[in-house]
Design a protein around this nucleic acid. Structure first.
Lengths: 159, 159
DNA sequence: GCAGGTCGTTGACTAGAGTCAATAAATCTT
DNA sequence: AAGATTTATTGACTCTAGTCAACGACCTGC
């Protein structure tokens, strides 16, 4: 499935009935708080992208998923997946592995918010994914790190 | 399996090779940062308790799991579970459901750290689990909320 | 080129959590 | 019950991120 830059493959208020696998391109997962975009995650080639909470609980999504470039993804639909679960027992393992994978991602992000300062998060990010800083506007990185753009600017100015 | 108050069913440095189900009692999941205990979670009857990251990745645990009262738990061992996965395909579903369940817990905790102030987290906690505040010393609640005991004391003094 | 945006930086100030210290209250111990 | 220890509160001060505003750099389209 082709997705053009800035297309929203999930909107606030919709139920997320898919898990997508990113073949090409990148996405941001964010929500809109009074006009201010709060970025929860960036996702790249090889990642799964979904609002897993909405997917699992059936509740409407609070978040948007938006392409940051033209992209190619493969979607697995909730209903399809459930019927696959019932028909082919091996697929359960896939579901389990996806859940485990997503767990590890969110758990490490929780760690970074519980135990690191914004400055430490920033340094860890450039360590882990310096490419992100080239490709993504700085105000989005700031949001991802949980600080205001002014603050990220000041963190960068510290030596 | 019986566990006495303050017993540590998982210690820092050990690989967590189990998932436990709490039949009776309560536990805290924490780690020790330079002598200061940082509490990640409290768990009660009906909850699963494990260092799921260590369990999944095989890496040593950074955390302790400690009983806060005498307790009764049922443990599922990693090796057992893996062999069950292979022998009985239906067990995969159990593994998936556990993973999904743990995902939702950690995701909502991440939300609270990304988007709420300590005061809002405190209010949400008394809303959700006022019982906790009776049973657990306040300095542990402070740690769980990600603030110092002095700060929690001041939050409580605000009206 | 120029006008209008957006983005990033910088400054002055505010607000809230951390730190350190003193004290009060609650809880073990014996 | 008395003393000792732990836990909770309060005060004074510091440090860091937020807020608001100004400004410059870089775009874009006309």
């Amino acid at each position: 499935m082709n997705v053009t830059n800035k297309a929203q493959i999930l909107r606030q208020g919709e139920h997320c009935n898919f898990i997508a696998f990113i073949h090409e391109g990148s996405f941001r997962f964010y929500y809109d708080k009074d006009g201010e975009e709060k970025i929860i995650a960036f996702n790249f080639e090889g990642d799964f992208i979904t609002n897993y909470r909405s997917f699992l609980t059936g509740k409407p999504s609070d978040h948007f998923i938006e392409a940051m470039q033209d992209a190619v993804i493969y979607k697995i639909n909730l209903q399809e997946l459930n019927s696959l679960y019932d028909k082919h027992k091996n697929i359960e393992r896939l579901g389990r592995l996806i859940a485990e994978n997503l767990y590890l991602m969110v758990a490490s992000r929780l760690d970074s918010f519980m135990f690191q300062t914004p400055e430490e998060r920033y340094k860890a990010l450039i360590e882990r994914n310096s490419r992100l800083l080239q490709e993504v506007p700085q105000y989005m990185v700031a949001s991802y790190l949980g600080v205001k753009p002014e603050t990220l600017s000041r963190i960068r100015a510290r030596k």
